[in-house]
Simulated assay, not measured.
Amino acid sequence: MLNRIEGIVIRAMDYGEGHKIITLYTKEAGRVTVMARGAKKLKSRFSAIAQLFTYGEFVFFKTGAMGTLNHGEIIRSHHLLREDLLKAAYASYIAEMIDRMTEHEAGSSALFEQLEAAFEAIEDGKDPQIVAHVMEMKILEFSGYGPEFEACVSCGRETGLSVLSFQLGGVLCSPCQTKDPSARHIEEGTWKLLRLFRRMDLRRLGKISVKNETKKQIKPILRGLMDTHIGIQWKARNFLDQMEKYEI
């Protein structure tokens, strides 16, 4: 069966001497796996469109679990993401989240649009850490673990919110702090930013400047929520940690 679909390459793996197996994320069909024959060869007509992060239109034959690429047209190459180590690392983390948290034949136009917008934002020079944090929030929402920031997760009170519980998945008011002794205090500015991330549309992301001190607070918060409720060892995130450790 011949299929024509727009997708973004979120994983690319060498196969044999000259081929690649690519995983696409699409609006209609979620994750799609396609064999791009000869794509490793420089003169191949598939070498460019099979590159990681490429947004294109893909035409492929599918008779089983994996399709075979027949034709492809690049819509946006996102080549700047591949040419900068830091941008590539953050884009890889975002791509890995999409790859590991979505399913075959279960597309989401909203998530697809946020993925493409995230790549565009990083490529355009927006702070990649902030873009990645917004995508972490999107993934938490998509997976059903979106944190509660507006009311106490224990009693529903909307005032006196002072700490965040990773285990309970949201904020606690002062009287309910004892429900989670490990809950952590969050500065007011950080609260505001986390609430903003919750409703932010990356397609409309303007110039955003976040102080390094605030970013240092946000990172362990999003990581704590991701690790508590999703619990995946992210390969790309580990690489980002190594980059930070050695100041690459």
Results as ranks from 00 to 15, higher is better:
residue 177 Q to S: 14
residue 121 A to D: 01
residue 86 L to S: 03
residue 94 I to P: 00
residue 207 K to H: 09
residue 147 P to S: 12
residue 104 H to S: 15
residue 45 R to M: 10
residue 112 F to D: 05
residue 13 M to Y: 10
residue 20 K to Q: 14
residue 86 L to N: 01
residue 63 T to A: 12
residue 138 K to H: 10
residue 182 S to V: 00
residue 61 F to C: 03
residue 23 T to I: 03
residue 234 W to I: 14
residue 84 D to H: 03
residue 56 G to F: 00
residue 39 A to D: 03
residue 235 K to L: 10
residue 212 N to A: 15
residue 155 C to L: 09
residue 198 R to S: 09
residue 102 T to S: 11
residue 189 G to C: 05
residue 29 A to G: 09
residue 192 K to N: 13
residue 58 F to L: 06
residue 131 V to R: 05
residue 206 G to M: 02
residue 56 G to L: 04
residue 238 N to D: 15
residue 186 I to V: 15
residue 190 T to L: 06
residue 172 L to T: 05
residue 224 G to P: 12
residue 75 I to K: 11
residue 114 Q to E: 15
residue 118 A to W: 00
residue 159 T to F: 10
residue 58 F to W: 05
residue 77 S to Q: 02
residue 213 E to T: 06
residue 188 E to Y: 04
residue 170 G to I: 00
residue 113 E to P: 06
residue 205 L to M: 13
residue 195 R to C: 09
residue 62 K to V: 02
residue 189 G to V: 11
residue 227 D to E: 14
residue 228 T to V: 07
residue 141 E to G: 01
residue 2 L to V: 13
residue 124 D to F: 13
residue 161 L to C: 10
residue 127 D to M: 08
residue 21 I to N: 08
residue 72 G to Y: 00
residue 115 L to N: 06
residue 46 F to W: 07
residue 49 I to C: 15
residue 133 H to K: 05
residue 198 R to V: 01
residue 184 R to I: 14
residue 43 K to L: 11
residue 44 S to A: 07
residue 102 T to M: 07
residue 47 S to L: 00
residue 112 F to M: 11
residue 137 M to L: 08
